[in-house]
């Protein structure tokens, strides 16, 4: 176990380095720069700014400087949001996205697992059809449509829910619904198919032959086997959801990290692009390790190597 974790950490470092390097060169190859704007800035001012942030140096030199600083934990200042470090932006915005995203993932699990199981148990019956239709919609309908529809009905027509910000518990309802729609649908589908698979297994027949009651068979013998695909999916999904969604955050005016990814790219805020990308990559890798460990706990057949 310890050996496994050490190995995964070493592997993670290599992966993050590769992600960082690729991102660094790709973003620098894209035309444009952080100090271009509609208002003409004098060439002298631009040159001074570039000199200040080291953008006048050749690319490889900037790469080396960035990587050295990053290794020392210094991810630099934002080029656009003057006076803020990249770390402080992430530290300020991530908790907001993480709270909304975390609740959404929780909702997705709480709804998706039982509904998917019910669909499998009632295969071919009305409940199965209803759940399958919901699941298909959840996967097919894009989040901006869901956001707009929710906002139109609950926010504008009925006036039940606030449409922007996160000041109270009520404010969370619509963003959470919008964010959890897709993962709920996905988990339902995963759960349904894996539950169907498990229900046909020989050990389920053994459990019945022992004289166990239906509930015990389902919760003890079926669920633990059927949940494995969901575990695999939830790991990376959690990483993406807690780092925020650009669309949902924009529509509901949530000051989260999701927007930063996009605005940083559009504004060529090089240091912020690097910071958010490395942050997301690290989260995804960490979540994958967590998934592996959870997997090992749920299914003893799995060996961590």
């Amino acid at each position: 176990m310890v050996k496994y974790i050490v190995k995964r950490i070493l592997l993670a470092i290599v992966t993050i380095w590769a992600v960082a390097t690729l991102t660094f060169f790709l973003m620098n190859l894209v035309p444009g720069g952080p100090f271009l704007s509609e208002k003409a800035i004098s060439p002298q001012a631009t040159a001074a700014l570039e000199a200040k942030y080291g953008l006048d140096k050749p690319m490889y030199q900037r790469y080396l400087t960035y990587m050295t600083d990053a290794l020392h934990g210094d991810f630099g200042d934002s080029l656009k949001q003057r006076g803020r470090t990249v770390m402080s932006i992430i530290a300020m915005k991530f908790p907001v996205s993480a709270r909304v995203g975390g609740i959404s993932v929780l909702v997705a699990l709480i709804l998706g697992i039982p509904l998917g199981s019910i669909a499998a148990l009632k295969r071919g019956k009305a409940a199965d059809s209803v759940i399958s239709v919901i699941a298909t919609c959840g996967i097919a309908v894009p989040s901006f449509v869901i956001c707009t529809v929710l906002m139109y009905f609950f926010g504008v027509k009925l006036g039940l829910l606030p449409t922007m910000g996160l000041q109270s518990a009520k404010h969370y309802i619509m963003p959470v619904i919008a964010l959890s729609f897709y993962p709920t649908a996905y988990i339902m589908r995963l759960m349904r198919s894996s539950m169907l698979d498990v229900l046909g297994q020989d050990y389920m027949r053994t459990a019945r032959a022992k004289g166990l009651a239906g509930g015990k068979i389902l919760f003890k013998h079926a669920l633990r086997n059927a949940i494995l695909p969901v575990v695999t999916y939830v790991g990376p999904m959690l990483a993406y959801t807690i780092t925020g969604s650009f669309v949902v955050e924009k529509i509901f005016v949530i000051p989260g990290l999701g927007g930063e990814f996009i605005t940083a790219i559009n504004g060529r805020d090089y240091t912020l692009i690097m910071g958010t990308t490395i942050f997301l990559a690290t989260l995804v890798i960490v979540m994958n390790v967590v998934v592996d460990i959870v997997y090992k706990i749920v299914d003893p057949r799995i060996k961590l190597k």
């Binding site: 297994q201 020989d202 050990y203 027949r205 053994t206 459990a207 019945r208 032959a209 022992k210 004289g211 166990l212 009651a213 003890k220 013998h221 633990r224 086997n225 749920v298 299914d299 003893p300 057949r301």
Partner: peptide
């Protein structure tokens, strides 16, 4: 009522022992 009997008064062993035991317990 059947559940009281199954595994108690009447038991069964199946063809394939490789798949008849639950792998996670």
């Amino acid at each position: 009522e059947m559940r009281q009997i199954r595994g108690n008064e009447i038991s069964i062993i199946f063809q394939d022992p490789m798949t008849s035991l639950n792998p996670v317990y």
